[in-house]
Design a protein around this nucleic acid. Structure first.
Lengths: 136, 136
DNA sequence: CTATTTACCTAGCGTGTCAATAGGAATATC
DNA sequence: GATATTCCTATTGACACGCTAGGTAAATAG
């Protein structure tokens, strides 16, 4: 359900948060530290820049910085940017053609509940929480 | 994360639970009622029989019945039979080669927590709960 | 005994996503 | 001008998903 894109994004953001004090953090160094393919990480990071989570600087001495403070990045938002709406079942995805069985489906409310449980869980954490954990 | 296999399985079991009073429930009739491809449903049902959730009877007048009372079918168990272990991220799946970043991964406990939240949610419901809902 | 109904079995197919790779262009610093 | 970096487009191989096809085996009804 949550692919490498979402997970790499989180790890990248944590890494940047922890190293940006020294200036812009180049993708290459994070890829090395985290053991992630450089080229693949590019794809992930591009999305984060496009959505305004990261500020980029090109050229020598360039790299990435967070656009805001870590407390303002909810895990749910980050995951949704990378993965799209995180419905656990296809029939709940927005823009889906309405299921014909919807009105009589005995499992609909089950999935709606699961959806909510997951959303609430991910919404309660921020980047700052993750950084704290990796300090220990 | 939860594919048609798991969802069809639940809907099939609910349907059988609600119609088995009249005898064995043939796959064909459930497929019609639920609007599911007969042939595809076969694949799903085969798995349920193999795992002892359903009792089958061949030939005319045959079909399927629950092996136990609906209260004894936890939603979590059913889903796990169809989908395998329901970890939201690959690195938590049992039998996965241990992640090299594991000891320093800032997101590990996040995923473990998500895993638990999902498991607990699905474990608290049984087939009987779903049947009640479709009665309303 | 035959026709019918049902479960059971094996195989294959088209589509899409995932994770990753390849090769370069644009931009900034020294 | 050399170097380090982000940015852009395209492609690949593997795999799962949802589904289809074409049968065989068993049980019942007439």
């Amino acid at each position: 359900m949550i692919s490498t894109k979402g997970r790499y994004a989180l790890r990248f953001l944590v890494d940047v948060a922890e190293h940006q004090a020294e200036g812009f953090v180049p993708l290459k160094s994070t890829a090395l530290r985290q053991g992630i393919s450089e080229k693949y990480l590019e794809i992930v990071v591009k999305e984060l820049v496009k959505n305004g989570l990261l500020t980029a600087a090109r050229g020598k001495g360039g790299g990435y910085q967070l656009s805001r403070v870590p407390e303002e990045y909810s895990v749910k938002t980050i995951i949704e940017i990378m993965e799209g709406p995180l419905s656990p079942v296809a029939c709940l995805r927005p823009g889906q053609k309405p299921c014909q069985q919807r009105s009589i489906c005995p499992t609909l409310s089950l999935w709606q509940g699961l959806n909510q449980v997951i959303s609430e869980y991910l919404a309660q954490f921020t980047l700052a929480d993750l950084c704290r954990k990796s300090d220990v």
